[in-house]
Design a binder for these strands. Structure first.
Lengths: 184, 184
DNA sequence: TCCTTCATGTAACTAGTTACATGATTAT
DNA sequence: ATAATCATGTAACTAGTTACATGAAGGA
């Protein structure tokens, strides 16, 4: 069976602690969300595939009459995860930024639009950084001892988005009406 | 007809100068590639759709007996593009980074792997920045006057990837064997 | 001659999102 | 009571990649 990166996200979470599909979604929404988001539409079918492949096993653990499936990683699953992590060959970092695309083509719309785009982008990154900061406070009290790198990666995110917010803010400041625009 | 961001990339290029599908691919591989990559599998069908919708029009311009379709943006296409660019409401910046995912889960594999990942990532961003730098030199001599923002966006890319390369390099330096690892 | 670039296109596939359906439990 | 949260899942859809097929033009 060939595993996708999304499969490894799931295995990675389960290597830390057993969890339900719902738990995995909650966890990734806070932790890996800013560099690898996943949705229920991927999680539930993938958990089934991983179970069939013997990389995780499932255990029923209902709360009253509400169903609940708890998944645990198996030894084979752990081996697959370690093998994947240990392959340190370069892989690309993909970015898809609709607003940067608009900014790129913004000469056609004038400096007002250009400045507005830059300001919105700055605010957007400030917000992302603030969201990560909250999660960071929370992580500090929790299992930072067992998974110290979680905190490091969160730190990259905070620093990166703070840097970007700053870049766009300074950029917006530098945008002035063109000579043609002033003439009108 | 509902246009995707990819449609607007094509319109954006055509707003600068008429081009063939091949030209568009060459151009985007150098300009928008690092924040919005597109492939032939999207370009050719999309050019057909845009033509049918009247946003671009096509003109045959063969070189000898080699076929060549040159596309031009129409007034309606220009209006659609400007409308899209002028909508400055926030949209997310999506990042998908397989290596950062590995780094996130690297506690399971030990500090050697962690350091190797960080070093590879640093090198990766150095390379991206260098590639953009080359394109930057080229752009400076060309139509920077008509589309000054192209240079600005390229600058963000260079600064960003340089910053990331530096971050990961410093991070790799900070990785040391854990006390457990030293004990073995 | 032969390799590279120019040039167009499609089919099959992989990945991922969105919207929906369903229903129990818990906190206000 | 009722709203929020917990919990599982699928179907339809959108987006995007990869691999392939085809062939002309230009330069070494």
């Amino acid at each position: 069976m060939n595993l996708s990166n999304t499969s490894y996200v799931i295995l990675g979470i389960l290597a830390e602690h057993p969890a339900s599909g719902y738990d995995i979604k909650q966890h990734t929404d806070k932790s890996t969300r800013h560099f690898w988001a996943i949705s229920y539409g991927q999680i539930y079918p993938e958990l089934k595939r991983l179970t069939d492949a013997g990389l995780v096993r499932v255990e029923e653990s209902p709360t009253g009459s509400r169903q609940r499936h708890i998944y645990r990683i198996t030894d084979e699953g752990t081996r697959a995860l370690v093998r994947w992590v240990s392959d340190t060959r370069p892989a690309p970092c993909e970015i898809r930024d609709e607003m940067l695309l608009k900014l790129f083509f913004s000469d056609i719309a004038g400096s007002e639009v250009k400045r507005a785009l830059a300001n919105t982008m700055s605010a957007r990154h400030t917000e992302v950084a603030a969201g990560l900061q909250v999660w960071d406070e929370h992580v500090k009290e929790a299992h930072l001892d067992r998974f110290p790198t979680h905190g490091d990666v969160l730190r990259i995110g905070i620093d990166l988005h703070t840097w970007l917010a700053d870049w766009y803010a300074r950029y917006a400041e530098s945008v002035h009406p063109t000579t043609e625009e002033e003439a009108t």
